[in-house]
Design a binder for these strands. Structure first.
Lengths: 121, 121
DNA sequence: TCCTATAGGGATAAATTTCTCCCCTATTGT
DNA sequence: ACAATAGGGGAGAAATTTATCCCTATAGGA
């Protein structure tokens, strides 16, 4: 596994939340788990652009940060379920705030993002 | 300059806001500009852990995404000021929500983050 | 005269994150 | 026998982001 060479900043609230939410798919994982998509395969279907591997890794990190719990059922074929912890649930309103702002400004955002991309290519 | 090889996802609001806020220092830049630290040198002092270079690059991206504007004064020594656009101002409540959650859970966050770091080293 | 502050950019290295490919387990269905 | 499904993990490549180093220019102060 990759080992960090520099320590993260943990000064203020923004540093701290950044440390647990920074990861390409983490916010979406929390969101979909909250929506009731609990099993890894469901989450992968909800987020088809992510590789299976990275979702596992990011789920593990969310678990280590105590935002979700994982329950493994000893059955065959295997079954696992993730759920938000109480702590993780307190993040949902914050994630909603992010998503709502994005939704409310959808057209404008898409426009500026694409404009920038084109100017670089 | 680096040229993207894969396109970003722009499906939902979370994708879109992620695209404009994803960057190690962007949220803090918006925050400090909103607090009145308008000049590049002030921003660098507020965020001493960031390299000068990266702040410039991320400021440029924020500008291209129309969240901030830049005004250059043709004086010597040089002077420049950034300000939030109206669009950028609408992000402040969202950033506050992030920061507040981080502040409210400061102890717990620091604890789980450090615990995880130690277990990896 | 030399150092500092101010703003910025190019080239390149280093760090970090994400992806791809392959492998393992055991059961059910074809 | 073989594929599909479900969950997971290692190795290494590729992509992306961030950091470092060096250079431009001018004014003012020690």
């Amino acid at each position: 596994m990759y080992e960090r060479k520099t320590l993260p900043n943990l000064h203020c609230g923004l540093d701290l939340i950044g440390e647990v939410l920074y990861g390409k798919w983490k916010i979406r994982l929390l969101w979909f788990i909250n929506e009731g998509h609990l099993r890894p395969s469901e989450l992968q279907r909800q987020i088809p652009d992510a590789s299976r591997r990275v979702l596992n890794i990011q789920l593990k990190e969310l678990e280590e940060h105590e935002l979700i719990t994982k329950k493994i059922y000893p059955v065959v074929p295997p079954k696992a379920e993730y759920r938000l912890t109480e702590f993780g649930q307190t993040l949902i309103p914050v994630i909603s705030a992010l998503g709502n702002w994005g939704d409310e400004n959808e057209d404008r955002l898409r426009s500026v993002i694409l404009k920038r991309l084109k100017s670089k290519s």
